[in-house]
Amino acid sequence: MRLSVQQDSFDLGHEANAFAAGITGAGAVVTFTGVVRDNGGKLAAMEIEHYPGMTEKAISGIMDQAMARWSLADALVIHRYGRLVANDPIMMVATAARHRADAFAAAEFLMDYLKSRAPFWKKEIGADGSEWVAARDEDEAALTRW
């Protein structure tokens, strides 16, 4: 299990390959990557703030739950903070399990919890000012399915 909260960018291909190479006994690897949307060309930058300390604690807790619930072979979460621009990767999740259903379900579970329970806040900087991204009710509601 690996968690990295980092300012630097990451290479999705490299991370996915390294994750897959480190696994034994799994027949399924799922990866998900979140990317900065350009809002129709209007986004100048996205600033991501987080709560150092709580971020790592909260995500580790979510990962422990996923590992136990789906008996995963391994899990990886990378989440960035700081100033990003359109098309930059924001975060990635990877899960490995014996069969694909567990790997997909665990990846979705991790994503749903990261959205609403990991202390990150996104601010979109545009040409005409900046705005904090509001949490969506759908994201909170998504937690009830788990």
């Binding site: 979140g34 709560y51 709580m54 989440h79 924001i90 975060m91 994503m111 990261l114 959205k115 609403s116 329970r117 990991a118 202390p119 990150f120 806040w121 996104k122 904090w132 991204v133 509001a134 949490a135 994201d139 909170e140």
Partner: peptide, 10 residues
């Protein structure tokens, strides 16, 4: 103690 708006990770 920390105060903040609803989180927007992911």
């Amino acid at each position: 103690v920390a105060f903040f708006p609803p989180m927007t990770g992911g």
